[in-house]
Lab assay of single mutants.
Amino acid sequence: MPVRRGHVAPQNTFLDTIIRKFEGQSRKFIIANARVENCAVIYCNDGFCELCGYSRAEVMQRPCTCDFLHGPRTQRRAAAQIAQALLGAEERKVEIAFYRKDGSCFLCLVDVVPVKNEDGAVIMFILNFEVVMEKDMVGSPAHDTNHRGPPTSWLAPGRAKTFRLKLPALLALTARESSVRSGGAGGAGAPGAVVVDVDLTPAAPSSESLALDEVTAMDNHVAGLGPAEERRALVGPGSPPRSAPGQLPSPRAHSLNPDASGSSCSLARTRSRESCASVRRASSADDIEAMRAGVLPPPPRHASTGAMHPLRSGLLNSTSDSDLVRYRTISKIPQITLNFVDLKGDPFLASPTSDREIIAPKIKERTHNVTEKVTQVLSLGADVLPEYKLQAPRIHRWTILHYSPFKAVWDWLILLLVIYTAVFTPYSAAFLLKETEEGPPATECGYACQPLAVVDLIVDIMFIVDILINFRTTYVNANEEVVSHPGRIAVHYFKGWFLIDMVAAIPFDLLI
């Protein structure tokens, strides 16, 4: 008679799926529990143990900040960024110097990925580790590398530091407007667009060049630039800015003055950032001319202004700041037409079709709590990747769950009947059967004279019903998954307890 339990259901295979997918890609990662103190490590794979030199037993239950890997060259700011990422709910990448158990130093890129439950609360953290440099290539500990984003994938490793954006290309926007319009339909740009040429040739750093990471940081200074100062900065030398009595002219307006920039070969870094931020506020060169004239017309309804409409929906549905990093990277690809469009465009503009998908598509409701890094690593669709929660398995109709209350009560009843059979069957065979043979035949009273025979008949009927119930009862397979398919249940029961239950259900007393 089957006594099969499996009270692990309803099970959740999400954690096993993450481990299996990460292991298949030869990654070095740990999984931490966000619900406990210090976000203790609950799993670390073999790749991480080989990377740091510690065994799994030495890593388990330690804080996922990996303070046991810190050393003299470990930056405090990087460690603080990892700790801050564990307090938030967004994906974050941090470069930090770690030390192995043998004392060797290596520069590592740590990717902190939160995993949320159905309520939107962070319950786990996945920390992925990628070695960037070994100890002989690690720089000085005073050099802070965590304020910069990861290198873009479309640049060669040897040319990542030679990417320079020439400031004269930004200063000569109005001069290039006529050349853009003359391109017409034969050019790649839309009317009114501004073409910015980027020099990728390796050259020595000069005062006129600005690194790509500095251009990325310009967006942080746009908020500090007032509207009046932006307007004066875009007017140009024809209309000098008016300053109040006793007030000095704005240095932001002076930063885009061609006369002032041409007199000296070098520009201050602050002026460069502010000038680029001011130019980015204009949607095209037409807006710059309109600002000089004193009238700013409404933005025209053409394809170039609607190019950012799908980007707005993608940004609203993005799951991490990696989408913004990807957008900034692609927006700086050289030799393309940049349409400086305000994100607050007309909502009635139709979304044009684009061959290049900048932001990841909208994630469906079932995966809105899973970050983009987890979705990318697992390579699963929205119909396959579940949320991290207890999910009731989908069972067929008329199927009994093996952990249901009805099955528990039924098993206790069958257990009592088995005990009765084990006690009274030998007793009936030894004593009652002998008395029946010696006594007179009682054929007239039937079952009324033999109450134990009636009980034995009921017990046999219950055993037959138990066999039928076992054909529709779920079970737990070797992978700790609840199986509810009727065919698989029948095959599993035939290979197991079916023969024993059938022999126990045969009414031998009635056959004798």
Rank of each mutant, 00 (worst) to 15 (best):
S178G: 08
A188R: 10
E214A: 05
L109G: 15
K161Q: 13
C265D: 15
K21R: 07
M218G: 10
F29D: 01
N12L: 11
D199G: 06
E230I: 09
S284C: 01
E23V: 03
N257M: 15
I82L: 15
P237Y: 11
A268R: 14
P151N: 11
L127N: 01
S255W: 04
L349R: 12
G149Q: 06
L343F: 13
C105S: 14
R326P: 11
C64V: 09
Q335W: 07
D199Y: 01
M124N: 06
A285F: 14
L349E: 11
R326K: 13
T375M: 04
P334K: 07
R148Y: 05
W154F: 12
C265M: 15
K28H: 11
N220I: 07
C44F: 01
R328E: 15
H7R: 07
A290D: 15
E274A: 11
K101A: 05
L311Y: 09
A382P: 14
S206E: 15
A160S: 10
R252H: 13
W154G: 05
K116N: 14
R92M: 13
R356Q: 07
V370T: 06
G120T: 06
S26H: 15
A290W: 15
A253Q: 08
K28E: 01
V110K: 01
R366G: 05
G47L: 08
M308A: 11
T174V: 10
D213L: 05
S182N: 07
A290G: 07
N317C: 07
A223F: 04
V3R: 07
R292C: 05
L127I: 07
D213I: 03
F129V: 01
S331Y: 03
P227D: 15
P141I: 11
A290F: 01
R5F: 07
A169C: 05
G314E: 09
V215A: 13
A160P: 13
V325G: 14
P386R: 01
V115R: 02
I363D: 09
R76L: 10
T319L: 05
L378Q: 04
P300G: 07
P157I: 09
A57W: 07
F68N: 01
L109C: 05
I359M: 05
K161G: 06
A78D: 12
P361W: 01
M308S: 12
V122R: 07
T375Q: 04
N220E: 12
K93F: 11
P150W: 06
N339T: 03
R176F: 03
P168Q: 10
R271C: 13
A303H: 04
G184S: 06
R252L: 05
A40N: 07
I123T: 13
L316K: 04
K332W: 01
P386D: 05
K21T: 13
E365R: 07
I42L: 07
G139P: 09
G345M: 14
S331V: 01
V194C: 07
S206K: 14
C66M: 15
L173Q: 13
T305V: 07
P386W: 05
Q81H: 06
R92E: 15
Q81A: 14
T337L: 12
G184M: 11
F348D: 12
G47S: 11
M218H: 10
A277F: 12
L267D: 12
S320A: 11
T353E: 08
T270S: 11
T17Q: 08
L210Q: 13
G246M: 06
T152M: 13
L155C: 11
S263F: 08
C105I: 10
D287T: 09
A160F: 15
A253D: 06
A156C: 06
S179E: 06
F14T: 07
G183M: 07
S179F: 15
A185V: 12
D46F: 02
M308R: 07
V110N: 01
E214H: 11
N317E: 14
H302F: 11
Q376C: 06
G246R: 14
M218E: 12
T74E: 01
A121P: 11
A80Q: 10
G184R: 11
T65R: 06
Q25A: 11
L200A: 15
S331L: 01
L170I: 11
K135W: 05
R326Y: 08
F348P: 12
K373F: 14
T216Q: 05
P150A: 08
H309C: 12
F98L: 09
P141W: 06
V222D: 05
E274Y: 03
S26M: 07
K116W: 13
A190M: 11
G47V: 01
L107H: 14
S250Y: 05
V195I: 11
E50F: 05
T145F: 04
R366P: 07
G187M: 06
L51S: 01
E289F: 04
G158M: 12
V36R: 07
K28A: 13
S179Q: 06
V110H: 01
K116R: 13
H368N: 11
D321C: 15
L267F: 09
A83V: 07
S207V: 10
V215W: 09
L173D: 12
A260P: 05
Q11W: 07
P205M: 06
A190R: 06
G314Y: 08
L349C: 04
D111L: 04
D213F: 05
L267Q: 06
S182V: 06
K166E: 09
L127R: 01
R76K: 15
M124S: 06
T329P: 15
L210V: 15
F68K: 01
A350E: 07
G306D: 10
M218I: 07
S250N: 09
R252P: 05
N33R: 06
D199Q: 05
G184A: 15
A244P: 11
P334I: 01
C52H: 01
A142W: 04
D342V: 01
V138D: 14
S266I: 07
G6D: 07
S304G: 08
R273T: 13
T162Q: 08
V295D: 12
P240S: 09
A188D: 06
V370S: 01
L248P: 08
L378S: 03
E214G: 06
K93S: 13
P141L: 15
H70K: 06
R164F: 09
L200E: 10
T353Q: 13
R292H: 14
E372G: 12
N339K: 12
P63Q: 07
A169Q: 06
L338W: 05
G381A: 14
T162N: 15
S206A: 09
L171N: 15
G236A: 12
M137T: 15
E230Y: 15
P334Q: 07
A217I: 10
G88D: 13
A217D: 11
V377Q: 01
D219Y: 06
V180L: 12
E58V: 04
